[in-house]
Design a protein around this nucleic acid. Structure first.
Lengths: 245, 245
DNA sequence: CGAGTGGTTCGAACGGTGTTCGTCTACGAA
DNA sequence: TTCGTAGACGAACACCGTTCGAACCACTCG
């Protein structure tokens, strides 16, 4: 009872005023706090509970299990994605890339949530806006319906996989120097391979180990996927000098 | 000293006859057994140890930690991939797809290994052959060096993500009927959305929920990635009826 | 031959995890 | 006021990865 009353300045708030009872929202809030501060590995029922000043068993009245809580975290992350750029059919490829960049940004802002997202079908309110936006952009690009629908699966899968990969390697408490040393070792390892059996791996050792630091690889994936989708359009609307009937 | 001499009946056995000592290989063998039988979640140091008739502490003389063991499982899986198709530059796109299919096949044969593979850089002997093969195929397709090098990252990432997604949803002990029911519910959910805000999601509800069963979605990803990579070639060697200068 | 020595084996334990059980409490309805 | 019930929660269960320290074993060196 040492807790002060959490009344906001205006007491006319619709929510409960004192000794705030546990709710789903408060639990997800606490989980997000732990997630952004300490990463996914640290998000345990115990830590969330202690963050709320209670025990782990209390959470189970509002959340079925940790998987469900993970799903809620994914939805929270989806809610943080903002797509305010009005759709311009002529720039659909660039806008699709920007959409994917925004998805990655939101996932990076909540390190570790990708792990929960990779197997989850997004059915939440805001995730649907992402789906609708992707479909609209692909429609603008004249991509066939079935292809567009499957792209709705492919695109989040790629973005999530990239985010997950990043969190996995950042979770192993490596310093940037460690990463650089590892990459250097990897390059010299590639260069030292028997050139008769792995000629291209040896020759491209530099390229293989470049871009490990940041976004270049992700941008490459964006380019590949966007170009691949564009190639599925029966009549390309892209600025190709192609005077089609 | 109560231990009797462990000589077997026939002393001419080629393998070690008695009380086989722990080795890395035997540990990985046991881990693979657990993995294929019970999935990744079940692969614990304790279970592996008891499979070998010992305690978990014994493993640490041969394996640094569980992450290293995971890496070894990934390498084992990579060793199971067979690429005996001689490279034919004219069919590089189809052969690239076949390579990715083989990667998925091997990962499916070891359910759960994808989870260990998704954050791991493949440096093992056999994983290098995959790398070399991908590079060779992309070279045949006239893909630029840096693009080919990054594709070596992109392609396993996609295949692994697909495999991981599959294992996640199969790990949640759903029967095929459950999956079908879930997909049906999802479709009616999409169909029932407000059509003014999610017009395309409603209209494409059927396509969005199709192909959940098997390989259609994976094949779609292959097509997109391959086409996207082909588009990066400065002078396309693909059979496109494009009389370019 | 005896003494050391360095690597394996492994029981026990530490500190963590998700989850369940059963008790208790507090509040709205009757 | 009493009752019923939903939520809170301490305690416990069955796991997990990992470490410690003692026994053990096959060697080599003196």
């Amino acid at each position: 009872m040492s807790q002060p009353p959490w009344q906001p300045i205006a007491p006319a708030k619709p929510a409960r005023p004192a000794k705030e009872p546990l709710t789903r929202d408060r639990i997800v809030d606490a989980a997000m706090r732990v997630l952004t501060q300490s990463g996914y590995e640290a998000v345990s029922m115990r830590k969330i509970a202690s963050e709320l000043g209670t025990g782990p068993a209390s959470l189970y009245a509002h959340v079925a299990n940790k998987r469900e809580l993970d799903q809620l975290l994914v939805e929270r992350t989806a809610e943080q994605m903002v797509f305010d750029d009005p759709i311009d059919p002529d720039r659909w490829q660039e806008q699709l890339k920007a959409t994917m960049r925004e998805m990655l940004r939101a996932m990076r802002a909540n390190p570790g949530v990708a792990r929960a997202a990779i197997g989850a079908v997004p059915v939440g309110e805001r995730a649907l806006r992402t789906t609708e936006r992707i479909l609209t952009l692909l429609k603008a690009g004249n991509v066939p319906d079935q292809a567009a629908a499957w792209a709705v699966d492919l695109i989040p899968l790629y973005v999530t996989a990239v985010a997950f990969e990043e969190t996995v390697q950042s979770a192993s408490d490596w310093t940037p120097e460690d990463v650089e040393r590892f990459v250097n070792n990897l390059r010299t390892y590639f260069e030292g391979l028997p050139a008769d059996r792995f000629p291209l791996t040896v020759a491209l050792a530099n390229q293989l180990t470049s871009g490990a630091d940041g976004d270049a690889r992700f941008e490459f994936g964006l380019t590949v996927i966007t170009a691949g989708l564009a190639a599925l359009a029966p009549t390309p609307l892209t600025p190709t000098p192609n005077p089609n009937p």
